[in-house]
Design a protein around this nucleic acid. Structure first.
Length: 614
RNA sequence: GCGGGUGUAGCUCAGCUGGUUAGAGCGCCUGCCUGUCACGCAGGAGGCCGAGGGUUCAAGUCCCUUCACUCGCGCCA
């Protein structure tokens, strides 16, 4: 017989009755009846009930076994009587009658800091410090298995499409753009540092210039920025993709089936089968997304949309002063149509109004289009609500036309400077959708956001800057850069969004040195910077670079969506906490003086932290 | 860096306008129990109420400071 097991804890059925078997695993739960003891043995695969009674000389010893001890049990498989079968368990038809057992782990003596056999919610610090216990628990264990399966599915689908997986360096050069780098001091070159890659961006482009045509990698990315619920601190994984001789449409056509198929494959993970929007995914220009959804990652499960109605409130016959004053200052008015809410109680509108005030807005004005009214201005507008009396019938008719109002609908208004009105309207859209309970359930809705602006004004400096990434190809090429107002130039830059989560950004790259020089010049960077900071790639552009592009969907976020988890740490085996500490391994940590000396580092700590580091 | 929330037994939490000896469930220990499957029953141990300071006759509760965790903002080409 095998040293540890002949079967796994999910294997045995009634048909195995009579066999002598050995199973191994953790003591999941004990039910001690005095003369009779049940013990659930758990491994990765499942649970099997072990039984022993007090005519067995081992009874006392087994009775003393603590939860989470690792044991192997040898015994005979016995079919249970009909009344004692457990239909909730795949192995519930049988039990193993213990004849011998062996303690395989060191005996557990301390109190368990968290109970493996319970789904009680625990504080995250405890869960992270004892991650190995948390990972034994059903929910997290399943999430990590899902992650493994999603990753191998992604790999298989990419390989099937003719992509090859490459490795790129982990120790590389710091890049001036983007997030803060993690730095690694060089021993050999005093005072110089490697950086961990924020993404293999330049390497994957260089692989295209090296003629490999189709690249992918499940790539670790490192960024020293603060965490969010959907943003793991320190490191995360991307399905990094790059292709040569492609247009934007070719990239979309390559990625869409991968995303669709993977989501379709795992969309039943939560126990309910979710629908997945079919390719081709909806394409929404950035400007349209900002207007209609108030952000660049719209949740299309929410059917509400935002419209611009500034022209209506600018009309001379509309006398709503609060909006008029703002419009004169360059403000805009945005409206959200809420279908068929005329019979909602007053509290529905009041609640939204006080929500808006809580968000720092003066309020959330609205008009309820209660009756038909006159579309030609001859009768009253039919509108009701605090703003309605300032908007005469003709203007109300105009609002009806602009927003597609049907009688019984309401319009909510947001008025502010454009940069504030759009995001606030986006928040209001979400809030109203939630309050109306119109957000679709059990569906993954994908879209592409396209035509991102190439440049934007940097708030801090007031100067032009790349709005996304300096490697994107401007639409219109060199000619656009030379002739167009930079702020009107779009890039071949796109995001994949699913249910309001930004899964990926990508671009057709700028592979022409001349165009890149011009783009950098507009962003205020001389040619020398390009040479100095991106020398390797800049040189490659001069020696035959194919047109290329790609994208990089976030693996953690894909798994998070599929697992329907609100927090990204629920799909990472060993995540760091929000302060970027690994509570299990104790990272970051102090190092020996000699180690610092080896890499030529002298500490210069902020005063408040001197004590902690000494 | 900033703002919100939380911090009470090993764990999850309750503890009202300040008022005797700070509670519950799970876990742990002891005893009873031969068909449970979240087994049951009886008993028990376990608390510097995150830390420091203050107000008060009296502080888990009020005030100040600080720390930890968490959510968000900044940040994330």
């Amino acid at each position: 017989m095998h040293a540890y097991r002949t079967h796994k804890c999910n294997d045995l059925r009634a048909s195995d009755a009579g066999q002598t078997v050995k199973i191994a695993g953790w003591v999941h739960r004990k039910r001690d009846h005095g003369g009779l003891l049940f013990l659930d043995l758990r491994d990765h695969y499942g649970l099997t009930q072990v039984v022993i009674n007090n005519d067995n000389p081992l009874f006392e010893a087994v009775e003393k076994l603590k939860l989470e001890n690792v044991i192997s049990v040898t015994g005979k498989v016995v079919e249970r009587t009909d009344e004692t079968k457990n239909s909730k368990l795949p192995t519930g038809e049988i039990e193993v009658k213990l004849e011998a057992y062996e303690l395989l782990s060191a005996p557990v003596t301390d109190m368990l800091p968290l109970q493996v056999n319970s789904d009680e919610p625990y504080g995250e610090d405890v869960r992270l410090k004892y991650r190995f216990l948390d990972l034994r628990r059903e929910v997290l264990h399943r999430n990590i298995v899902l992650r493994c399966d999603v990753i191998s599915s992604l790999r298989r689908r990419m390989l099937e499409q003719g992509f090859r997986e490459f490795q790129t360096p982990i120790l590389t050069a710091s890049s001036p753009e983007g997030a803060r780098d993690y730095l690694v001091p060089s021993r050999v070159h005093p005072g110089q540092f490697y950086a961990l890659p924020q993404a293999p961006q330049q390497f994957k482009q260089l692989l295209m210039m090296s003629g490999f045509d189709r690249y992918f990698q499940i790539a670790p990315c490192f960024r020293d920025e603060d965490a969010r619920a959907d943003r793991s601190p320190g490191e995360f994984y991307q399905l990094d993709i790059e292709m040569s001789f492609v247009t934007q449409d070719d990239v979309f056509a390559a990625i869409e089936p991968v995303m669709y198929d993977v989501f379709e494959e795992f969309s039943g993970f939560t126990g309910t089968k979710w629908d997945v929007s079919k390719p081709p995914f909806v394409r929404i220009p950035y400007d349209e997304s900002m207007l209609k959804y108030g952000n660049d990652k719209p949740d299309l499960r929410n059917p509400l949309v935002i419209a611009d109605v500034t022209e209506v409130f600018a009309r001379p016959d509309v006398e709503f002063k609060a909006f008029k004053t703002m419009i004169e200052k360059g403000g805009v008015v945005r409206a959200i149509r809420a279908p068929a809410v005329f019979d909602k109680p007053r509290s529905f509108f009041d609640k939204l109004n006080s929500w808006a005030q809580g968000e720092g807005a003066p309020g959330l004005g609205y008009i309820i289009f209660e009756s038909e009214g006159g579309n030609n201005g001859t009768a009253a507008g039919g509108g009701k609500g605090p703003i309605a009396k300032f908007v005469p019938a003709e203007a109300q008719a105009e609002l009806r036309r602009l927003c597609g109002i049907e009688t019984g609908d309401a319009l909510f208004f947001i008025c502010d400077l454009p940069a504030k009105a759009a995001p606030f309207a986006g928040l209001a859209r979400t809030k109203i959708g939630e309050e109306m309970d119109v957000i679709e359930k059990n569906i993954f809705k994908f879209c592409w956001i396209v035509d991102f602006p190439m440049f934007e004004i940097n708030d801090r400096t007031g100067k032009l800057d790349f709005s996304h990434n300096p490697f994107s190809m401007p639409q219109g090429g060199l000619e656009a850069l030379e002739k167009q107002d930079p702020l009107t130039i779009k890039a071949y830059q796109y995001d994949i969004v699913c249910n309001g989560v930004e899964l990926s950004s990508g671009a057709i790259r700028n592979h022409l040195p001349e165009v890149m020089e011009k783009a950098f010049a507009i962003a205020g960077h001389p040619k020398e910077i390009l040479q100095e900071k991106f020398g390797g790639m800049y040189n490659a552009f001069k020696f035959g670079a194919p047109p290329h592009g790609g994208c990089a969907p976030g693996v953690d976020r894909i798994v998070m969506l599929l697992a329907n988890e609100p927090n990204i740490r629920e799909v990472i085996a060993f995540p760091m906490n929000q302060q970027a500490q690994d509570l299990l391994m104790g990272a970051p940590s102090k190092v020996d003086a000699q180690q610092l000396k080896d890499v030529h580092i002298k500490l210069d700590l902020p005063k408040t932290q001197v004590k902690a580091a000494s």
